[in-house]
């Protein structure tokens, strides 16, 4: 099997997305507004506490955490993949993939990766500006090994997010409208992945449950490795759990695909 065709898909995705760079910049810029809002809010919370840390977080740690989440989101969150996949199924366009020597999952992944590259290159500048403005609060890890673990955790987080979006989108084989399912899932993900606030602010029993859920490994875990909140053996353990969820999501996506194809009627194809 050759990978060349997937490389071509990736290159095409890069070209296609470059056309929409203004749309990306727009999105990224607007994404910074709620972030600024929550930074002000936490500023007020820590003022009210007289600067005292909450569950190990002071204001600087909070800023550092939320900025790392921002960077991670720009690197990994699938932008419109789920809607495109659902539309491909609904409009019968996947028929043309079934007769070509290309795997749809591989095609979508190459497409996702290509889009992410451009998205990151475009949105890097506003994000970098934000980092520079708040540089006093940043605390990059001192040792190279943490950089490496963070890189691995970030890649796995990206793959996991992609596979989950892909599997959710495949529900279009059974449903006419997938947006409610997707948004219900996202409402859980938003909280449980630690995007809104660090999971450390939740009670210990909650954190113990969250440690075994896939959501934690979509965003919180890579940032926790980077900021040194997860250390030593816990890093290795976390990476293994994360990899396990990637495998589960992959198998789940494959299963849904073959079950879905049995139902597929190529409407409009």
């Amino acid at each position: 099997m050759s990978l060349a065709k997937y490389r071509t898909v990736l290159a095409l995705a890069v070209q296609n997305t470059l056309v929409y760079r203004w749309n990306f910049l727009f999105r990224c810029f607007f994404g910074l507004i709620p972030l600024a809002g929550s930074l002000y809010l936490w500023g007020a919370v820590f003022d009210a506490r007289g600067g005292a840390a909450a569950n190990g977080f002071d204001y600087s740690a909070m800023v550092n955490y939320l900025l790392c989440i921002l960077a991670l989101e720009n690197l990994t969150v699938p932008a419109e993949d789920e809607w495109q996949i659902a539309a491909d199924i609904r409009d019968g366009r996947i028929s043309s993939f079934l007769i070509r020597p290309i795997d749809y999952l591989g095609y979508r992944f190459a497409n996702y990766a290509g889009t992410r590259v451009v998205f990151t290159l475009v949105t890097m500048w506003p994000v970098a500006l934000m980092f520079w403005l708040l540089r006093a609060h940043l605390a990059p890890p001192p040792d190279a090994l943490t950089w490496l673990w963070t890189a691995i955790a970030t890649v796995q987080a990206g793959v996991l997010q992609f596979l989950i979006s892909y599997a959710l989108a495949l529900s279009a084989f059974w449903l006419l409208e997938i947006s409610t399912i997707v948004f219900i899932f996202y409402s859980f993900e938003y909280f449980l992945s630690g995007r809104l606030f660090p999971l450390e602010l939740m009670p210990p029993w909650f954190q113990e449950i969250a440690r075994w859920l896939p959501f934690t490994y979509e965003a919180w875990f890579p940032v926790a490795v980077w900021t040194g909140r997860v250390q030593g053996a816990a890093v290795a353990q976390g990476l293994v759990i994360q990899a396990a969820w990637v495998i589960v999501a992959f198998l789940g996506a494959r299963l849904m695909w073959s079950a879905g194809l049995r139902r597929y009627q190529a409407v409009g194809g």
């Binding site: 919370v45 909450a54 809104l196 602010l201």
Partner: peptide
């Protein structure tokens, strides 16, 4: 829920 979490760590905000 977010309000609940926030006010678990403070009495009041501004």
């Amino acid at each position: 829920l977010f309000v609940e979490v926030m006010f678990a760590h403070t009495e009041s905000i501004v």
